[in-house]
Design a protein around this nucleic acid. Sequence first.
DNA 1: GCCCTATATTTGGTCCGACCAATTTGGTCG
DNA 2: CGACCAAATTGGTCGGACCAAATATAGGGC
Lengths: 241, 241
Amino acid sequence: MSSSNTISHEIAESLRDEILRLQYRSGERFPSERDLAARFDASRGAVREALSQLEQLGLIRTQPGGARVQSVDSASLAVLGPLMQLNDLPNPVLVDQFLETFGVLAALTAKNAINAANAEQLIQLKQLVVKLADESVDLEGMQPRWREFMETLSGIADNLVVRLISNDLKAQFVDQMMRLGIRPDLKKSSIKRLISSLRVSINKKDGELASEAMLAHFEELRTAMSEAIGLKASEIRQMAV
Amino acid sequence: MSSSNTISHEIAESLRDEILRLQYRSGERFPSERDLAARFDASRGAVREALSQLEQLGLIRTQPGGARVQSVDSASLAVLGPLMQLNDLPNPVLVDQFLETFGVLAALTAKNAINAANAEQLIQLKQLVVKLADESVDLEGMQPRWREFMETLSGIADNLVVRLISNDLKAQFVDQMMRLGIRPDLKKSSIKRLISSLRVSINKKDGELASEAMLAHFEELRTAMSEAIGLKASEIRQMAV
DNA sequence: GCCCTATATTTGGTCCGACCAATTTGGTCG
DNA sequence: CGACCAAATTGGTCGGACCAAATATAGGGC
């Protein structure tokens, strides 16, 4: 499926997925570099580069004498994407957890951004919300505007920690959902309510209100996404028959 | 200070810090592997392994023809630790952002854990809180208990996304604060209030209440930590004179 | 003089073979 | 049965070599 251009990356992906599929017990010895080189018909150097990546992901720990597999949930955040991508359909539980987490981070960002925004930035936000409202008829076309709005919020809030987390999460999640063609079907009314709340919170410079609106929105997104995945699942089941 | 045992890791750390210190502009060409090998007096293989790690961190992007530096705030979450460790004293702004972020995640975990806990788990939590209260006289000695409590909450909430993020953050932050001897001076009364709130929320199985208590606690932790760092800073300034 | 193209150079990606040091393993001895 | 020692295994590093892609450079056309 996802074959990088370089051999070392392919090896890394392959081994990473094996570990994520729990084909090794935590603490178990990992095959030696020479064995892996033979198995993948590659040089030891390429294998070493792959293992170096796995180590960075927190999936293995190498030492002279042998590498050992580590527990998945002690790994780095960067394994989330691959973890969701293991099967042809993303794990719904994981997706839901992702949205829940992303929701609280987005709410935090909105709260801080609006509370910290100066007059100029408030005007900018207001304009962005107007643009959002204009395009709210087309849920697909709204995406870029929504992204722009969130980006601006993130820029004003200026919280690097949240930003890095969101980057990681987004890169591993949003794009993948797009690629799979899983699109949550949000009700027009709920979007309208969200936009309205945002507008009010900006006008009143009420970060708390924006935070609550954001939380509510992601709550609805979670149920919608759950349904969307369920739908996709039945589609696939049909095709299999 | 932080010299790994292997050469490739040392090179990686060195280059990572250079990038984090913004010694390269985003998009700028990175020195060639051969040049780096000469500079560090190492083999090209060792350099390549180091670059492989930097790429995993999202700090550079390699391509035939040359590697390029990427913007720091498009990097992976794993750069946070090194970023805070660049100077002898951690960046207070970053520390504050960290605590704020960790706070909302902890609050989310507490809410979900308590809402999802079964009878047995509630009893377990109750016992842990009692143990916390018993040791609340000694703020230092309380740490392990607090960790245990949070671990248990995390286990019950069972949200892998939050867990992975928290792992990353904790590994890069908590231990470092410990190492630097920066200990926030929380008031006994506020700890008492936290424990009391937690106890009530467990008894009433009220996740929302636990969430609020957690948020309030991290809020106090933020101010305390800010003071602690300020104190440390003046200490260092004294020593310099 | 400027722009575009073709060539030469640089650079990353991979391979091979080799050596060292630390760990692991297996057997031997007490 | 346990402690201890030697051999095999394994990761870490080095050097040199070749290829393909990307870049830089020189040349020709306008």
